[in-house]
């Protein structure tokens, strides 16, 4: 199971290194979003800026993740390679797990660019507690990737796959993003703390990882 998932994730990462179709686009999108928000929020006072900035970061992360999730199965459908994987003697959950591992790598690569830019544009001095923010990013990434890959697989079956993915995925991720925003806000100096929100993110991840793993088997096939 783990070996097959690592094989498939390695294949996706190798394809991305050669084709550069996903991560560069994600980095560009997230930076442009943060730049626009930076100028749009000039008029917001210093007291309100942290709240607005926390929201901007998570909106940027969420919509940037959609770029990668929309292409999660593109290479596998291009020449029907997914069929060969589906009939291989592996737990089909390994296909889902392999995609999740690849998506986590893409998200992490994007955030390596996004987080310093977030700091640069919004907080030259005191920002949120970096440990809490990183914890929120890691937990949110797991939730976004695990649910996103499942929904992406589901959307592939429909004719309007490009529309289906955001329509199905965004409502599912609203609780996760709200918790991530609350965790970020709580980590600012004088905030309420992030522990409860991070706990909610961990609970969300546990539930949806188990649900997605158990469900993927039944989504494969036409």
């Amino acid at each position: 199971m783990i070996g097959a998932a690592l094989t498939l994730a390695g294949k996706d990462l190798r394809l991305e290194l050669r084709r550069r179709e996903v991560v560069l686009g994600m980095a560009q999108f997230v930076i442009v979003t943060l730049v626009i928000a930076h100028f749009a929020l000039v008029a917001v006072g210093d007291r309100q800026l942290p709240k607005a900035a926390a929201g901007v970061l998570w909106i940027a992360v969420l919509f940037t993740a959609l770029l990668a999730l929309g292409r999660a199965f593109a290479a596998d459908h291009e020449d029907g390679a997914l069929d060969a994987v589906l009939i291989a003697p592996i737990d089909r959950g390994a296909i889902w797990l392999g995609k999740v591992l690849a998506q986590l790598t893409f998200l992490a690569a994007m955030e390596v660019v996004a987080v310093p830019a977030f700091w640069l544009f919004f907080f030259q001095t005191s920002g949120p507690d970096i440990r809490a923010l990183l914890a929120a990013l890691v937990l949110a990434n797991v939730g976004i990737a695990s649910v996103g890959v499942l929904v992406s697989a589901l959307a592939q079956a429909g004719r309007a796959r490009d529309v289906l993915l955001p329509v199905l995925l965004l409502p599912l991720l609203v609780p996760l993003v709200l918790a991530a925003v609350v965790a970020t806000l709580g980590s600012f100096p004088g905030g309420d703390g992030s522990v409860r929100a991070l706990g909610f993110l961990a609970l969300f991840d546990t539930l949806f990882v188990l649900l997605a793993w158990g469900t993927y088997e039944h989504l494969s096939g036409d």
Binding site: K11, R19, A75, D76, D79, A84, A88
Partner: peptide
């Protein structure tokens, strides 16, 4: 053809051999 463009012929077969 059920292969991944962007990979070599050997890499395509190696993925399937691993599975």
């Amino acid at each position: 053809t059920q292969a991944w463009r962007g990979l070599t012929a050997r890499e395509n077969l190696t993925v399937m051999a691993d599975l």
